[in-house]
Write a protein that binds this DNA or RNA. Structure first.
Lengths: 349, 349
DNA sequence: CTGAAAGCGCTAACAC
DNA sequence: GTGTTAGCGCTTTCAG
């Protein structure tokens, strides 16, 4: 039987109210009694019971994380950031993985409406409009990460900027025929990245050649899949001499497919066609893929912070934070920087 | 203000005790009143308050998942299985990612000792002996996944069998000089995989050539890293004509590094040196890596089930379940099967 | 500043 | 079968 505040109260010769006050850093406690209570609590190895606390205060000390189960890497990194911050705040994270859009609403209902959590972190998915509206009755704060809705705090990456940077880089390397291998343009991120591409071209005074832009028609994960990268790369290769010398790819995972297609065709990456991906998934590093890095960890940390702030001050204005992605130069772009020798590893046996 | 059992009791003209019984499927309630209560509850859109329930019954309807934060893929897949099963049981999952061994104990203490959860799923890490012992006082069930300790239920993969299968496959393809690129043999999985390798060789009547076995000395993630794969592959290549014609690699991530080293040396994979990995991480598929697949999803499902069973029957005997890994033939082994043309994708534009 | 007392919403033991 | 009652461990008035 773990110790309760009654045990502490008895041993410290105070009332339970005082113990509670000490434990909650309530100001009106004399330094003397505070110290005494704290000492007893620590001696007894006391841990507050979260449920009792939750019942009495209607705070739960837990948040819900609703994440899509189809984007491994992204979640993984971002989540580290979230947890780093939340652990510090002594909050628990209830995880809810979603495979199908239908489950999104279920998760929200299930947890939020039962006030099992104080707040929600909602990742990379479209917030169901129905819920967004109905949510107005609710007070549980929701922070959107890699997703946007005007009624909620959100953190997103500047995809246009990313597409722009990727294209500029290729252009600066001397490429004239730069194309874009895009995901389904139904997807907002894909569209924005494409816009960045076009903008960079325009600035460089290069007219957009429609044959150099191909986008997936797959609705599956909006074409963000290696199959789509493979298929579209094949199309580019079929163009023969009219094919691009460099390609901006709208996601690393598509770049993986594109790379495979290149290899199958007996072509080499920076030499025959240079590539810049998007996302900087773990794999990118292993593949030597030049790409656009999204500050996922930082986003996770900030998401936790924003949620925390809103919990303390529910009426503050809604904020929309935009992150700037960063170009990571590796080998697939054929840049000078990548011509250095491979890292030497200590040998082991 | 969400409805409580008092609201239901009033409207259904019964006592709160009866409402509680109905809600908990207690047998001694007449069909009549049960139906009436249920109708009111549904009309009021009643949801039990998990914390109140938890306080009163000292059941939490939540489990803790302690996962290592350095193995992305593995956790991801297994977790899907866990959740598929647990969602069904209407349990919440509190996630606790661990970056440093020290945090393991903290997480356990923090959650278990405060009885915030009914049970724990503990992944891929060494259970701290101190905790294991002290745990005897506790009643919170713990199930180990991809980890072993005699005092706890566990699910593990038969690594020896996997190493054996990988080696057999290479042997059956006609290779005579088959080597092993192993992780740190301090790690039990690495050791078991190596044993499987040796066993297959022995059965085939091939003497073990020590120069054909190299293992990482890195303690980091026990040498399960692409750097270690890269470094050791270089060593193999330095052997010149005495180098192996095929290699069993103790993890896919190492195979990635090995593949890179091969490429840098201007060599090709199935042709110059054939490779079989271990794990079947998502990446393996993209790379065409022949490997040993661990049934991660299934392990997740079963882990949830075992935990659930133990919760209902704490005194049942401890079970240790061993999974059989499966060979997945792709391209890097140079097997006939892989000689079929690449999958044709529907083109999109 | 501090003790006592009243719940938070629910379960479970106890009567009837 | 069903109502009543006593907590679960903690927070939060309300007195003093």
């Amino acid at each position: 039987m773990p110790p309760t505040i009654y045990d502490i109260a008895r041993e410290a010769k105070v009332g339970i109210g005082t113990v509670s006050r000490v434990l909650n850093n309530h100001p009106s406690v004399s330094e003397d009694t505070r110290a005494r209570v704290l000492r007893v609590a620590s001696r007894l190895n006391y841990r507050p019971h979260p449920y009792a606390r939750g019942l009495a205060s209607s705070r739960t000390n837990a948040i819900l994380a609703v994440i899509p189960f189809f984007t491994t890497f992204f979640f993984h990194e971002i989540f580290q950031g979230v947890q780093a911050r939340l652990r510090h705040l002594d909050w628990d994270i209830i995880l809810y993985g979603v495979n199908h859009p239908d489950q999104v609403e279920a998760s929200l209902r299930h947890n939020v409406l039962r006030n099992r959590v104080d707040g929600v972190l909602f990742f990379s998915m479209k917030m169901p409009e129905r819920f967004a509206e109905q949510y107005l009755d609710q007070k549980t704060p929701i922070v959107l990460v890699d997703a946007y809705h005007k009624n909620f705090d959100s953190l997103t990456v500047d995809n246009l900027q990313g597409g722009y940077a990727a294209t500029r880089h290729l252009l600066s390397l001397g490429h004239k025929r730069v194309g874009m291998l895009s995901a389904n343009i139904e997807s907002l991120p894909a569209r924005d990245r494409l816009s960045g591409f076009k903008q960079a071209l325009a600035e460089a005074g290069i007219p957009v050649d429609p044959s150099l832009i191909k986008s997936s028609a797959s609705p599956k994960p909006d074409g963000f899949a290696h199959e789509s990268g493979h298929a579209m790369m094949r199309q580019f290769l079929d163009m023969g001499s009219r094919k691009p010398t460099a390609l901006v790819v709208s996601s690393d995972i598509q770049a993986v497919g594109a790379l495979a297609a290149l290899k199958e065709a007996g072509l080499r990456c920076p030499d025959d066609i240079a590539l810049v991906g998007f996302d900087d998934i773990e794999l990118a590093q292993h593949l030597g893929l030049t790409t656009i890095h999204q500050p996922m960890y930082e986003m996770g940390v900030l998401a936790a912070e924003i949620l925390s702030e809103r919990l303390h001050n529910p009426s503050q204005e809604i904020t929309h934070k935009l992150f700037v992605p960063k170009l990571i130069v590796r080998e697939t772009c054929g840049s000078e920087v990548s011509k250095r020798p491979a890292t030497v590893e200590k040998h082991t046996a």
